[in-house]
């Protein structure tokens, strides 16, 4: 399989880099201080392919801390509020859209 770093990167709008944390699989976002955060609002937002490639390369270099880094679309409102750009990322950020436990009698 082609490494994400070797794939052609096309972004059409603001994007972030996300992955899962190695120890527990939690959703994490590459932040503005070269680390990871579970909070989307701390994510580093990139707006062109070169910046996205650089952010992804930096994220992928942390093989111990994170698994499966990739670029995901976001929307940015009022220049600061970051929101997931599609349903999959919405679910990853907000959790499942259903009650976790089966209904009781």
């Amino acid at each position: 399989m082609t490494s994400p770093l070797e794939q052609k990167i096309r972004i059409t709008g603001p994007s972030i880099v996300t992955a899962n944390r190695t120890a527990d699989g939690a959703v994490i976002y590459r932040n503005r201080t070269n680390g990871w955060s579970t909070d989307l609002s701390h994510a580093a937002v990139v707006r062109n392919a070169d910046d996205a490639r650089a952010l992804l390369a930096e994220a992928a270099a942390d093989d111990v801390g994170a698994v499966g880094a990739y670029i995901a679309p976001v929307s940015v409102k009022d220049g600061e509020t970051i929101k997931p750009g599609n349903l999959r990322e919405h679910i990853r950020q907000r959790g499942v859209t259903i009650d976790l436990l089966p209904v009781s009698a």
């Binding site: 190695t22 939690a26 959703v27 093989d63 499966g68 679910i91 990853r92 959790g95």
Partner: peptide, 25 residues
Amino acid sequence: LSGELTEDEFKMLRLQNGVYLQLHA
């Protein structure tokens, strides 16, 4: 977890033990 194995090396080992990585965990 110590970094001795990369994810590429570990993936097949975890799959052989029924461990997938899904959206949240």
